[in-house]
Computed example of a mutant assay.
Amino acid sequence: MNIYKEELSLPDSVDMKPWYIVTNSFKIDMVIGGTGGDVTSNYLINAYIPKTESTSSVVSAALSGTPMLTFGDGSGPKVLIVAGVHGNELPAPIAAIQLINYLNGKSIKGTVYVIPFAIPYDTAISSRYWQGQNPNSVANIPGTPTNQIVNLALSLNVNAIGDFHSTQPGGVPGQNAILCCKHPTYESHNIASYISTQTGCALISSYQAGVDYPGALEDVCNLAGIPAVTCEVLSAHNTVASGSNDVSLSQMLAFLQYYNII
């Protein structure tokens, strides 16, 4: 538009830089478009997340799509933390925002990528489904948000992924638990064992990825050669059971401690 104002003609092409925000401690990139929503319209999310400048930056970014925060300069161990794959599982996104505020300004030994709201629109309305599909059953289908996260992790060459959820009483697994596999990435089992020991959460290990939960983000990542675990806390859908977000945060911190990042 400046060129048109000065020369009264439009250029044949323009270069557009990717959308991102840089703060003193972290960078926010928009990694998936078309998934945005006002997560603070979910009254429980709004009630529990810390009211800080960092939180405001993330909430604003989530209006446009799926934001990813980067702590560190890309060196050392690189890990990806994902929350909010299911929009009606609220403790993990709250814990992810708590983690972001915890990491802000801290010196870390490595690189931490955090996706606090995988599908902000779903979190805003507490929906488990995205476009009629369970996002954690279609990570193997090109174009889905979870498949885009898998491809993002591959492009970032991360050492591991932690996918954080909550589980209903009487559901599967129906308890605070760390899920993993032994094949083809035994490191998944090692990570889960460590988090389980540190947090007191149950360890649930499958022999082969993609059998018990085909299409799950964890399984698709493990099959792609990226060690991944699923961390569950006990809380009914659309609720935040007492202390559940703190248990989720402790799982995230243990995940980072496994790699000596904090």
Rank of each mutant, 00 (worst) to 15 (best):
A228T: 00
N140L: 07
N245H: 15
T70W: 04
V247I: 12
I49R: 11
N136F: 05
Y121S: 15
Q175K: 15
I141V: 14
I161D: 00
A61Y: 01
L10H: 13
Y258D: 00
T146D: 00
S75D: 09
I49N: 11
P93F: 03
L103S: 07
N147A: 05
N245F: 15
L103I: 04
I226K: 03
S9C: 11
A224R: 03
A118F: 01
K27Q: 13
P67C: 08
T52M: 04
A236R: 12
T185V: 11
L179R: 07
P142I: 06
T111E: 01
Q148N: 08
S206R: 10
Q168A: 15
A202K: 11
L223P: 07
I94G: 06
A139G: 02
A153Q: 02
Q208R: 10
G72N: 05
F71E: 00
I204W: 08
Q198Y: 07
Q251G: 05
H86D: 02
F26V: 01
I32Q: 01
Q168R: 13
V22T: 15
A209C: 09
D29Q: 09
S127I: 07
F26Q: 00
S242V: 11
V58I: 15
Y207S: 09
P184D: 12
G65R: 11
I204R: 10
N42C: 13
Y213I: 14
T199V: 05
C231K: 08
N42K: 05
D219F: 03
S244W: 02
V138T: 09
G34D: 06
I178Q: 10
E218S: 12
A124M: 08
Q257D: 15
Q175L: 12
A177D: 04
Q168K: 10
T239Y: 14
I45M: 13
S41D: 10
N24W: 14
T52F: 11
Y113H: 02
A160I: 00
K182Q: 14
G162D: 02
K182T: 11
N46W: 02
G225F: 02
V247W: 05
G87S: 07
L203K: 06
G132C: 11
I21D: 09
Q198F: 08
V138R: 08
H183Y: 14
P142W: 09
Y121M: 14
G84I: 01
V39A: 06
C221Y: 03
H165Q: 04
S60P: 09
V59Y: 02
V85G: 05
I191S: 03
F117L: 02
V240E: 14
P173W: 08
P120V: 01
D29N: 13
I161V: 08
S155Q: 07
G215S: 04
I178M: 11
Y48F: 15
V79E: 00
S205M: 10
F255I: 03
S25M: 10
A241L: 12
T66E: 01
T55P: 03
G105V: 06
T66F: 03
C181W: 09
G162W: 05
S250F: 00
N42R: 04
R128N: 04
K106A: 13
D29K: 11
S205N: 07
P120E: 08
A160R: 00
D219G: 09
